[in-house]
Design a binder for these strands. Sequence first.
DNA 1: TATAATTTAATTGTTTCCAATTAAATTATA
DNA 2: TATAATTTAATTGGAAACAATTAAATTATA
Lengths: 144, 144
Amino acid sequence: MEAPPGEEALLLKNQLCFPLYACAREIVKRYKPFLDPLGLTYTQYLVMMVLWEKRQVTAKALGDCLLLDSGTLTPLLKKMEVKGLLTRTRSSEDERNLLVTITASGEALKKEAASVPPKMAKCAGLTPQEAGQLYRLLYKMLKK
Amino acid sequence: MEAPPGEEALLLKNQLCFPLYACAREIVKRYKPFLDPLGLTYTQYLVMMVLWEKRQVTAKALGDCLLLDSGTLTPLLKKMEVKGLLTRTRSSEDERNLLVTITASGEALKKEAASVPPKMAKCAGLTPQEAGQLYRLLYKMLKK
DNA sequence: TATAATTTAATTGTTTCCAATTAAATTATA
DNA sequence: TATAATTTAATTGGAAACAATTAAATTATA
């Protein structure tokens, strides 16, 4: 798909990367109406999913989970702290580590967020089988 | 994949959107070493693919192709004009339309770019069958 | 132990991306 | 025709995203 030789290879419609890039942006847009009422951006929603599961993580671990670096996470976490969703403290064992901890208010948001995944599932427009296929292919690409 | 009910649905690992979002960013990163020598960012490369195919398009048509709006395209096209890759002129039939036209130097870049798609195909780490599947699934999602 | 290497966040500067608004040109309609 | 509605770019402001650098803490090593 991506590498027919000659002229064809540079046509937009023969690119695999373009629908990937466009689809990722499109999905974030489709989340927006569901996340706006929670006061979360899509990236903030990802951070909250990690915190709803683990309650406390280091910024490093969060970056490893979400594949984001400190240049993205530092300002993001500061904003979320101002909103009262989490706290940022240094680990006493190792002062280099920033501990990100969910607040009660962050926990409380989980109830409201419970309605988001079912709504989004409809938005994707794929059958469960197709969604499973897509999931597997994307993780295969990511692992490479 | 995206909507198992209850607790499960908010786990990061059960999201379909996350690998999509992460994969799109990852792919742009994998392009970087191949596009840097051409002096193009990934988005600029997409614009050039359209121009290599059509030579001239309106900004509107370009936005429809790439699913980008004027807020993104206006500054992008201005930068590309400064680089000498394209010209920006108004249509005489309809002054609202901005005509984006490839320059000789933009055309010349196509030869160098020919090596990019085969290199990227290897980077994706998918079989041609898998790439085809992924392509179909992504466009299905986009159409919705 | 003193120094070097490593790890972790933060910072800086650039590029996207989008929502919302504005302005200009064109088309439709009263 | 005069006015209203539509279309197209541009602008503005905010949030990511990343590369490269810096600074601080820790660990490894000479």
